[in-house]
């Protein structure tokens, strides 16, 4: 049994040159492999740098953490990008929520005829990606055709294409983001890229979104859309009046949604879908103003809340009229 004192005795050569030729060659070969591996691993980043993602952009902070100066810088960069890629000079603004304003929407199910003008106006307003001019697959509004007699979404049809609407024994229910007060989507987001603004609108920081689509799975109203590819837009289709949190041009791989046209409504205007509705079925207003149209409806009409049992407490109300 060898005693602990029996250490292997080092030769003089080992003492003077601790690294033998063999070990040195082995080590250098391993480190070359390691270095090249590291370079290969960093390759996508270097590639990104070439494809105009700057360091600033990589280090950009969350919308709520940015100082006004930083935000201005980002908006200026986005404007330049729009100018470079599409040749149009958009005006990107970031309008802040006003005090004493809470947005709410009401939709008259008795009046809606299902003409889909709102869905198409949404597309014209919000710079969604589209394959052709009338491609409303990314529109934030889905108009459902339902059978009269019940509100059964299971048998609803959003692909109806009849000669004229309304069809006999059918009624129509446009569905868009309900801007829930207890919003499941904001709770599902793992990175807090979507949140509710003080005026009630649920917004997305497109630069913070990681594209996991958890929010889409959480939404009971199918209100969110995902950019599978780089948005396809032509120069003439771009709306130049853009908001940072609403309709600015989105990158690939992020989720977007209806924001009640924040760039319009925070400037005091009506949302695009309401401006074009031929039947006047849509009513928009400030729910905190006791004299607003919205409060008139809530006090005087029969109001229906879609999927009330889910407990989302939406800011979007359906109502019936005579």
């Amino acid at each position: 049994m060898p005693s602990p004192d029996d250490k292997p005795v080092k030769t003089i050569e080992e003492r003077i040159r601790p690294v033998s030729r063999r070990t040195f060659l082995k080590g250098s070969a391993a480190s070359i492999v390691g270095m090249s591996g590291l370079v290969a691993a960093l390759q996508p980043l270097l590639k990104l740098e070439k494809e105009d993602i700057t360091l600033d952009q990589l280090l950009q902070r969350h919308y709520k953490e940015m100082t006004p100066a930083q935000l201005d810088k980002v908006m200026k960069r986005l404007q330049e990008k729009c100018e470079r890629e599409y040749g149009v000079s958009a005006s990107i603004q970031d309008l802040k929520p006003q005090d004493g304003v809470g947005f709410a929407y009401a939709l008259n199910l008795t009046r809606c005829v299902g003409c889909r003008k709102c869905a198409h106006a949404c597309l014209a307003e919000n710079n969604q990606s589209r394959e052709y001019d009338d491609d409303i697959s990314m529109s934030y509004i889905r108009v459902l055709e339902l059978q009269k007699g019940s509100i059964n979404l299971e048998t609803s049809n959003q692909y109806y294409d009849s000669e004229s609407v309304p069809r006999k024994d059918k009624y129509y229910m446009p569905v868009q983001c309900h801007q829930c007060r207890e919003s499941p989507c904001t709770k599902a987001c793992p990175v807090n890229a979507t949140w509710q603004e003080p005026d009630g609108v649920v917004t997305v920081d497109y630069d913070w979104c990681i594209g996991c689509r958890y929010c889409m799975a959480a939404c009971p109203y199918d209100a969110r859309r995902f950019n599978w590819e780089n948005p396809k837009l032509e120069k003439r289709q771009i709306n130049l009046d853009q908001g940072y949190l609403s309709n600015r041009l989105r990158p690939k791989g992020v989720v977007e949604k209806c924001t009640f046209c924040l760039h319009r409504t925070r400037a005091g205007k009506y949302p695009a879908c309401m401006e074009v509705c031929p039947t006047g079925a849509r009513v928009f207003g400030n729910i905190l103003d006791p004299n607003s149209e919205i409060n008139y409806i809530l006090h005087n009409k029969r109001v229906y809340i879609l999927k009330e049992e889910v407990g989302t407490n939406p800011r979007f109300y359906y109502f019936f009229d005579t």
Binding site: D161, S164, P166, P278
Partner: peptide, 29 residues
């Protein structure tokens, strides 16, 4: 909005629908 001589709101042609997903089963409607 209403023709006073015939005030019922007239039916209109709806704008084009979204494309039906190509890989989905045929619709029942």
């Amino acid at each position: 909005c209403h023709d006073p001589h015939s005030p019922a709101f007239k039916p209109m042609k709806p704008l084009p629908p979204p494309l039906y997903p190509s890989r989905a089963p045929a619709p029942k409607h």
